[in-house]
Amino acid sequence: MLKIANQTFNSRLLLGTGKYPSFEIQKEAVRVSEAEILTFAVRRMNIFEESQPNFLEQLDLTNYKLLPNTAGAKTAEEAVRIAKLAKASGLCDMIKVEVIGCNKSLLPDPVETLKASEILLEEGFIVLPYTSDDVVLAKRLEDLGVHAIMPGASPIGSGKGILNPLNLKFIIEQSSVPVIIDAGIGSPKDAAYAMELGADAVLLNTAVSDSKDPVKMALAMKMAIEAGRLGFEAGRIKEKEYGEASSPMQGMVSS
C-alpha cells in the first residue's frame, strides 16, 4: 500500500493526463493502468472557442484522486497562486509543486520549489514537490514537512530513464516520507528499476501517452511497477564475479 499523508492507495503508479492521441485511448489507458492518482495542469479555459470535451469532466471522480500540478510556474509565488486556484475547485487537497528553473532542460528550480513548498504547507496543502535528484535538497524538503518527495529520473518527457540511481537510492534510504520517481521514465524497464531501487511509486505521463500503443504501454507500466516492487520486497541476490552452478555437482551421469 502507498500511503501519502493520511490516504492509502493500492496502485503505485501515478499517471499524467497530457498528450494522449484521443480521449477514448486515454480513458482506456487510465483504466488498464489501475492508477488511482491522476495529475492535471491548471490553465485558462478556452471560453472563446467552441466548447471542447474535458477529460476531467468525463471521469468518475469517486474513483480517482486528483493531483494538480503547478506546471508553468517559474517562481514560488506563481506556484502558490496555481495551487490555490486548483484547491478552489473543491476537488483536491494535494498539489504537485513544479517550478521550472530552466526552459531547455525543464529541470526544477530548487530554491523556488523549497519556498513554494513551505508556503503551501503553511496553507494546509498536501505537498508533493517535483525535485531534482539532489539528496540534500530532498532532506531539506522532508524537514519542511512535505508529504512525499518526487525526484526526477531525467528531464521531463525525455524518456532517458534513470540517470543517477545512486542519488535516487540515497534519497529513498534517507526518506521517511514516500519517494515517487517522477519524470524521465522511458520504458517499463525504467519503471521497474525505480521500484527495485526502493521507490514507493512512479509518476509518468509521456512514456505512456506518446507510445505507439498507450493502452498496452499503460498495462506494461502497471505490471513493471508491480514486478519491480515485488522484486524489491523479495530482495535481489548479491552479484558475484564468476559463475555459480544452479544444478548440483553431485550425482553426475557419466559414461
Binding site: 499524467g16 493526463t17 497530457g18 498528450k19 494522449y20 486515454q26 495529475t39 492535471f40 495542469a41 491548471v42 490553465r43 485558462r44 479555459m45 471560453i47 474535458n54 477529460f55 476531467l56 486528483l66 494538480p68 500540478n69 506546471a71 490555490k84 486556484l85 486548483a86 478552489a88 475547485s89 473543491g90 476537488l91 521531463i156 518527457g157 519524470a183 509518476l203 509518468l204 505521463n205 509521456t206
Partner: peptide, 28 residues
C-alpha cells in the same frame, strides 16, 4: 481574488474588472 461558488450570485462585476476562468487540463 479566488471566488467561492456560494459567492457567485452576490459578486457584482464592474467596468474594468479582471476575470480569469480556470479549469483543469491534461498534464503530467
Amino acid at each position: 481574488q479566488i471566488t467561492e461558488k456560494n459567492q457567485y450570485t452576490s459578486l457584482f462585476l464592474s467596468d474594468g474588472d479582471m476575470v480569469e476562468m480556470i479549469h483543469f487540463v491534461g498534464g503530467g
